[in-house]
Each structure stands twice: as C-alpha cells, then as structure tokens.
Computed example of a mutant assay.
Amino acid sequence: MVSPQALSEADRRTVAAWAADCAERVLPLFEAEAPDDDRPRDAIARARAFSRGELRAADEIRRRFVAGRAAGDVSSPAAVAAARAAAQASGVAHMGAHALGAAAYAAKAVGLVVPSRADAVDEEVRRQLQAMTPAIRAALRRLPLLGEDRAGPLGSGLLATGVLATVIRQLQADLAAERPGGPVRRETHSRPTPDGRAFWWTETLWAAATGLEPVEVDVDSIAELDMNCWFGPDLPPTCRAVAEHARRIQEARLDHPIILSADGGLMDGGHRVARAWLAGETRIAAVRFTVDPEPDWME
C-alpha cells in the first residue's frame, strides 16, 4: 500500500520547488562553515530540477541521503539544520511529506542563528506560508497530520519533536483553515474498484472539485441516504457515535455543495444530505466529476 505521505508524483513535483526555496533561504548558514561542500546546494538544485520534470523520481530516491550526510561534517546547530533542510527538500522526490520537513528544518535554522529573537521562527513560518501557491497548498493539504500516520517522515521520528513539530503543526493548521467546515477532521472516502479498494482524502476531493459548477439535485436521488455509510464492524453505532453524527448533521453547512463521483455516487457531504432531508429540503447543491480524481492510495 502506498503511504498517504508519499503524494502523487505530480503533487511531489508541485511542492518540490517550494521545499527547495525554504531550504535555500538558510543554505548560507551551512556554506559559511563549509564553503567547499556543495552537497546541500546540489540537493536543492536537484529538487528544483525534479519540480520542473527534468529528473526522474527513481533516480532522485536513490540520491536522497547525500545532503543529509553533510550535516555530520559541520558543528554549529544552525549549519546542521540548514543541511538537513536541503536533505529534506531532495527527499520530496521520494515522499511529499519531506516538503514540510524542509520548511521545519529551515525555520529551526533561522531560530538557532538569531536566538535573541523570540519571533524569528514564527516570522520564517509566515514567509513560508506566503510563498505557497494555491496548487502547493492543495497538495500539502493532502498529507496526513503530524503523528497521524507512522509510515513516513510525519510519523514518530525527529519531525514529531521540538521546534520541528511546532513548525509543522503551524503550517498544517494554516492549511487546514481553508477547509470547508473549519476544524480539522482528517477523513477519507473509499469505494471498491477492480484493482482493490480506492481511498481519497476528503481534501483531495475538495481540491479536485474546485472550479466545478454547482447544480441542484434531488435529495432523494442520493442513494447513500439509505445506506450504512458511517458504521460497520469496527465502528458500531453506539449512543456516543450516533450523537457525534447528530452534532455534525446539526453543524453541516448547506452552502457547501456535496461532491458526486462521475457515476453519481456520494463522495463527500453525507452530513449535509442528512441535514437537508431533516429540514424538509427536496433539492441540494452538488458538484459532479466527469472523471474521478486519482485515488490517494489503494488497498
């Protein structure tokens, strides 16, 4: 199974340039101590070349550890962090989550070089956020939250500790603020396919649906209204679970259209459909894919 931290190759190429920019901001901190060591600079250049489609993912995956070894050849904490930022940027070809690692190490390096400035790290994070294009934000929103998935850099390793974790949580909190409905709820939609069960992060569906023209559909035409979509063997309908769904139905906003697959199946918006039905509404706003987006992973 492909880790949700990997992202698609297209998304990895999208975020690689941003990761390279983050790392390059602090590259002088490394080169001031090791001016003849070009491993971090080369890693950043390769990340940019990968983002432009000039390098193959497979080749870059084999080379992703080169810049990280440079961190062992410098002594100042800021130079070490700068080298690791470059290494994370080069690792984006392997896993998209390394983009957040590049940003985190870069912000840490800035904080280490000016320890007297309490806001130095926050200021660097703000700059990193301002440098994100809508496409970069959409790609990064597809990553699991820090600590939510163990199979990758956002698991329980170095990025989940100290300043690095704080920076990544700041970045992900800002990214999450754009999601419809406000608070972060990491959810998926899945369905069986001939190749196995396909899974999409809900954010993937939101991003793919951007720009689609909403239309009104009959509430009673949504087949999932009469299906068991929320409970199963591992999720029994306890009173607490039912109450949680009742609360979410109450909070659902009908000004956000539901999302339908190319074949008309509900991919996002079950609580909105339930609220519309309870309110006696016969129509609900919906967007529908003509071609479903690629799943985030298969099982």
Score class of each variant (00 low, 15 high):
Thr14Ala: 05
Val80Gly: 09
Ile284Leu: 08
Arg142Ala: 05
Ile259Lys: 07
Gly101Val: 06
Gln170Tyr: 13
Gly264Ala: 02
Gly264Asn: 02
His98Leu: 04
Thr210Leu: 11
Leu278Ala: 10
Arg185Pro: 07
Asp37Ser: 08
Phe65Tyr: 04
Ala20Val: 07
Pro35Cys: 01
Ala20Phe: 11
Ala223Trp: 06
Leu254Ala: 15
Arg41Cys: 01
Gly91Arg: 09
Arg39His: 00
Ser116Ala: 15
Pro293Trp: 13
Cys229Val: 12
Gln128Thr: 05
Ala160Arg: 01
Leu143Pro: 03
Gly147Val: 04
Leu278Gly: 03
Gly196Gln: 02
Arg275Leu: 13
Glu203Lys: 10
Leu254Gln: 10
Leu27Cys: 00
Pro40Thr: 00
Gln172Tyr: 09
Ala160Phe: 03
Gly270Glu: 04
Val114Thr: 13
Arg64Cys: 00
Thr193His: 05
Arg46Pro: 01
Ile136Cys: 04
Pro28Phe: 06
His271Lys: 01
Ile136Met: 12
Arg141Thr: 00
Leu171Cys: 11
Ala58Tyr: 03
Asp296Asn: 12
Leu159Ser: 02
Ala109Asp: 11
Ile44Asn: 00
Val110Asn: 02
Glu203Leu: 07
Ile258Leu: 14
Ala43Gln: 04
Ala274Ile: 05
Phe50Tyr: 15
Gly96Tyr: 06
Asp38Arg: 10
Val287Tyr: 04
Asp122Glu: 13
Arg64Val: 02
Gly265Tyr: 06
Gly157Lys: 15
Val273Gln: 09
Phe199His: 12
Asp174Tyr: 07
Ser75Asp: 08
Leu158Asn: 12
Ala177Gln: 12
Leu145Phe: 10
Val92Cys: 11
Ala246Ile: 03
Arg62Val: 04
Ala177Glu: 14
Gln250Arg: 09
Arg191Val: 15
Cys22Ile: 06
Gly53Gln: 10
Trp277Ala: 14
Gly155Phe: 05
Ala177Asn: 11
Thr238His: 06
Asp255Gly: 12
Phe231Asp: 01
Glu148Ala: 15
Ala10Asn: 03
Leu159Trp: 15
Phe50Leu: 13
Leu27Phe: 00
Leu55Ile: 05
Gly269Ile: 05
Ser90Arg: 12
Gln250Asp: 14
Phe289Met: 07
Ala49Tyr: 11
Ala165Gln: 08
Arg69Leu: 05
Arg288Cys: 14
Glu213Phe: 04
Leu171Val: 12
Ala49Gly: 02
Tyr105Ala: 01
Thr290Lys: 11
Ala82Arg: 12
Ala58Trp: 01
Ala85Ile: 02
Ala285Leu: 15
Asp37Ile: 10
Thr290Pro: 03
Ala286Lys: 14
Gly280Leu: 09
Arg247Ala: 08
Met1Trp: 01
Pro236Glu: 01
Leu225Gly: 06
Thr238Pro: 03
Pro295Trp: 03
Ala252Ser: 07
Asp220Lys: 08
Ile284Trp: 08
Ile284Asp: 08
Val113Cys: 11
Gly147Trp: 06
Thr282Trp: 15
Ser8Cys: 05
Ala83Ile: 04
Glu31Pro: 00
Val114Asp: 15
Pro144Phe: 02
Cys22Asp: 10
Arg137Thr: 10
Asp296Ile: 01
Arg52His: 09
Gly101Thr: 12
Val215Glu: 15
Leu112His: 04
Glu244Trp: 08
Ala209Tyr: 06
Asp226Gly: 08
Leu146Pro: 13
Asp122Ile: 03
Gly111Val: 05
Pro183Cys: 12
Glu60Asn: 00
Glu54Asn: 08
Gly269Lys: 07
Asp292Val: 07
Leu158Lys: 14
Pro293Met: 13
Ala57Asn: 04
Leu254Gly: 11
Arg197Ser: 13
